[in-house]
């Protein structure tokens, strides 16, 4: 038994919401499966050329330039490979399995994610690992790796899990974070970790200006960093800007203005 390869028939059409299109869910030619495209619901095979291919339990999507939203939403097992860019909400509320995006992805990727792995080769949009619009719970588990940069509010209200970003992040990264770990290889925008309660935000460059509401806990060696490095080597995603060795980092504790005890770790030069 093989997986499926879905190729968009009409790339210039409106965004296609792929909620419910998951590995192992497509029987045969995908007959009976419908998705919302723009404002209307259509049969999946009217929008995609569906063929057998790829390993069993996998799904290969070829957007051909079309906007595919909610790729892997609610996914629990299997693997999805997107040979191009994703739209918004990639890996939304994912519980398991692996979603690999060879291009970029839009806003709300890994929103409310609970488990599994999301790997994005390019950039990610705003609200990576944050709650869905109107929601109160950010990412609650799983691993996200981004090869490029990410937008504003990465890891907002995050509760558990690991997010690594090779490049830069925008404003309010880790704002209102409750737990979990975010690692950023590049620079970060204004107001990092605003109103953070707990959790770890690991940076290799000190934020400028320094975040208000944090107290300096001094520079120390952190064994945790070596363990994290080992873990990330497994995923092959240790941010490029980070030193390859060394466990020394300055620890800022806060955000005290919100009664928080989270940590902002700024790596020292190895």
């Amino acid at each position: 038994m093989t997986g499926h390869i879905l190729t968009v028939r009409e790339p210039a059409g409106p965004p296609i919401d792929l909620t419910g299109v998951l590995p192992g869910r497509l029987a045969g030619d995908g007959a009976g499966v419908t998705v919302i495209c723009g404002r209307e619901r259509h049969p999946l095979d009217a929008l995609f050329d569906i063929r057998d291919g790829g390993p069993s339990g996998s799904l290969i999507l070829r957007p051909e330039g079309a906007v595919l939203d909610a790729v892997g939403a609610g996914m629990a097992e299997g693997e999805i490979l997107v040979e191009g860019d994703c739209g918004d909400q990639a890996g939304r509320a994912m519980r398991g399995g692996t979603l690999i995006v060879e291009g970029r992805c839009g806003a709300h990727a890994a929103a409310a994610m609970q488990g599994g792995r999301l790997m994005v080769a390019g950039d990610a949009g705003d609200f990576l690992g944050a709650p869905l619009p109107g929601g109160t719970k950010g990412m609650g588990g799983g691993t996200v790796t981004v090869g490029g940069s990410a937008g504003d509010r990465v890891g907002e209200r995050m509760r558990r899990g690991l997010v690594t970003i090779q490049g830069n992040v925008g404003a309010l990264c880790c704002a209102r974070m409750i737990a979990g770990t975010v690692v950023v290889g590049g620079g970060c925008g204004p107001e990092p970790a605003a109103a953070m309660r707990r959790g770890t935000f690991l940076l290799c460059r000190a934020p400028d200006p320094p975040p208000t509401g944090f107290v300096d806990g001094g520079e120390n060696d952190w064994l945790f960093l070596e363990l994290l490095r080992r873990e990330l080597r497994v995923h092959g995603s240790w941010p490029a800007g980070f030193p390859v060795a060394g466990t020394r980092a300055r620890r800022l504790i806060g955000d005290r203005s919100a009664g928080g005890r989270g940590e902002l770790l700024i790596l020292s030069e190895a």
């Binding site: 919302i36 404002r39 209307e40 619901r41 869905l132 619009p133 109107g134 929601g135």
Partner: peptide, 21 residues
């Protein structure tokens, strides 16, 4: 409506030719 965004997502209605989404 803004506060109940989860509800709107869970109960999304597609357009059906007469009624809008």
């Amino acid at each position: 409506r803004l506060l109940m965004a989860e509800e709107h997502r869970a109960t999304a209605v597609a357009a059906d030719g007469l009624c809008r989404c």
